[in-house]
């Protein structure tokens, strides 16, 4: 059995891979929906984002613990950026999931909202990539 400290560090690595995988998958699924017009891709995108969002608290909580213990809470460019972009990521991911939950037909509309929704889904992939890149510097 791993000591708690190590277990939490491993939890962070696992949970961040969930968010870093599920949001790019969501972007890929929404792209497939735009290409094929098959609703199942749009629905899959929504569920993928829900599971991605659910793993964020675990990823952030364990990441914060790791920063406080292994890195003794030191402030550097990487940590500052991880915090700022992490907060932006959480806000945007919450907005997208809540929006889609309240308006299930967002992708079937023809207005500007549809494209704003798509842009948000793509932007989450961009931020997840940046956060993953920063996290990769510790490995």
């Amino acid at each position: 059995m791993l000591p708690l400290k190590k277990l939490i560090v491993h939890t962070h690595h696992i949970a961040t891979h969930f968010t870093n995988a599920l949001f790019p998958v969501s972007a890929a699924l929404i792209t497939l929906y735009l290409i094929t017009d098959k609703p199942s891709f749009e629905t899959a995108c929504y569920y993928s984002m829900i599971f991605g969002l659910m793993s964020i608290p675990v990823a952030y909580g364990s990441g914060f613990y790791d920063w406080r213990t292994r890195f003794q809470g030191r402030r550097t460019f990487i940590f500052d950026h991880k915090v700022v972009f992490g907060i932006i990521f959480l806000i945007l991911a919450s907005i997208v999931v809540i929006w889609r939950s309240y308006d299930g037909g967002i992708m079937y509309s023809v207005g500007l909202n549809k494209w704003l929704y798509v842009t948000l889904v793509y932007s989450l992939t961009g931020i997840a990539t940046w956060l993953g890149y920063l996290g990769g510097k510790f490995i």
Binding site: R70, F71, T76, F77, I78
Partner: peptide, 13 residues
């Protein structure tokens, strides 16, 4: 200096 400190922050653990 900040770059060097950052490298050490990563290296020490």
């Amino acid at each position: 200096l900040k770059k060097k400190i950052e490298a050490l922050v990563i290296a020490i653990p």
